[in-house]
Design a binder for these strands. Structure first.
Lengths: 286, 286
DNA sequence: TATTCGAATGTAATAAAATGACATAAAATA
DNA sequence: TATTTTATGTCATTTTATTACATTCGAATA
């Protein structure tokens, strides 16, 4: 397992001084791997043997060995959740941190997904008479994106980010309708109510949300992204990217399920876009 | 660059003894990173300082530093391979393929970005009187997402996915306006026209698009994502995710530039959302 | 509240590892 | 072949990590 995540996970199993070490490392892992044990001890304000003991506690042979493990955690491409942006990061630093934490997040999401549920969701979607995507706030752009994709399948699909429209759409629903609700926390009141309403009107409700949330309880099928909280920054970031990729997965599953003949349809849609382009066309939705 | 590849590439530039070291490392890099300099010297049948010199030749500070680099290059043999989905992939297979290729794509995007340009873009954005985000089709949800983020900064910001509205908005523009245009290909005619129009009206045009595209030519500043084409599947997928992450980067840069005092504002926005939630609140945009 | 035990932490000595300075050997050039 | 340059090794020094041991802290018990 990723050393850095391991440290974060075990934070509370450490003793007082060991936690100081852990924190010093988490603040700046880069510094840690380039420091000597004496240096790190000074930064963490503990003694050198404490640092050493800390390393051993994490199942390494000693400080140098620990540094190797840590270095591997930090290696490019190795997902790594913990790298938060600091006040004094330059463009170089915050750019890579954000890309990296997004990748880490996707990796976590990938590992946490239940492919059986995905399969069932694809089942349900392929059999739907009509599909609706609802999200509020940041999640509304995810819903919007889903609309854009499913629209190409030439089936009735809609997307509202207005609560009133969402309600109306639910009330007019019938069996065979599938409603996909998107919410990171699953605690957005209006959306939970929509889920109830939709089910009362015989629609099938798929939720892209957190496990054990109120929204999850009101849904027929929950696709949860075990994505760590977006820390520190007061905006949804990575979590929403994971949702989008999940939409991609569903779309792909949908396409595959419908088979080759269906793919011709996609080609046609894409060809139809061509006219609005300057020569050398390729695959963008518009 | 990957240290291991670097060693392979430079094999013939090394001296006789240094090559011995290189070969010993290539035979078993794992052994190398877990050896002391004395040990490795023995394996390579050279003296300790020779190993040290070898390390320095590879632009490292010394043997320990070299080991860190080597460990990192071992950590990610080949980060994420861009595997395409096949007709007969099951849910398990296509799910991981899509997640992995998205991660690969983000990694490519990260490496291809010019952080100086990002910095300049952040500069421009922080000094803007008004910011508009325009995208069409799939890119419109990216624009939408950008709106959602920048909206929290409490500055005038708008977003249209309707060409007519976009034009009108440009015509009413003035100096100090910044228009962010989003298009993967940069060949969407209406958007290129918008860029021209915006510039005629003294707005500053930032494009999130492909290098050397018509849209890029019409823009003041181009942030290009050197992202491989979305192959095989007839939809924009990874490319658009990369755009979103880039928006995250810009947002972060913006926040950092505005400093700590500004972050309080974000806290307030987040607190304001709280009421519409069921207990246990955390960070989702609504 | 004082006492005792055990865990946690630090100090100082020791061992290990890496590096630097210098000498020697090998190779290249005149 | 002599001379210079470069490469390599030996040994001393310095830096770094580890071990053994002493002290402190804090919880549990009398």
């Amino acid at each position: 397992m990723n050393t850095l995540e391991l440290i974060k996970k075990n934070l509370d199993t450490f003793s007082k001084s060991e936690r100081k070490v852990a924190e010093a490392i988490l603040v700046s892992p880069e510094t840690a791997i380039h420091s000597s044990i004496a240096n790190l001890a000074k930064i963490a304000e503990v003694s050198e043997p404490t640092v050493n003991r800390f390393c051993r506690r994490l199942d390494t042979k000693g400080f140098p060995d620990f540094k190797l493990h840590l270095a591997q955690s930090l290696a490019n491409g190795t997902p790594y959740v913990n790298r938060n942006v600091n006040e004094d990061d330059g463009p170089e630093a915050y750019t890579s941190k954000i890309f990296e934490s997004t990748m880490a997040c996707l990796n976590a999401a990938k590992n946490g997904l239940d492919t059986n549920l995905i399969n069932r969701a694809v089942d349900v979607l392929t059999q739907a008479n009509k599909i609706s995507f609802f999200g509020l706030g940041a999640s509304s752009s995810v819903a919007h994106d889903a609309l854009n994709k499913f629209f190409r399948f030439n089936i009735p699909v809609s997307c509202f980010d207005d609560i009133v429209m969402q309600r109306m759409s639910c009330i007019n629903g019938s069996e065979g309708d599938v409603i996909v609700l998107i919410s990171h926390t699953g605690r957005t009141k209006p959306l939970v109510e929509i889920a109830e309403l939709a089910r009362e009107n015989d629609a099938f409700v798929i939720a892209l949300t957190a496990e054990d949330s109120p929204l999850a309880e009101q849904s027929n099928l929950v696709l949860s992204l075990g994505v760590p909280e977006d820390t520190d920054i007061y905006m949804p970031m990575s979590s929403r990217i994971a949702q989008l990729v999940l939409i991609d997965v569903l779309t792909t599953g949908f396409t595959l399920r419908r088979g080759a003949k269906f793919r011709d349809n996609l080609k046609r849609v894409k060809a139809g876009i061509k006219d609005s382009r300057f020569e050398k066309t390729n695959d963008e939705a518009f």
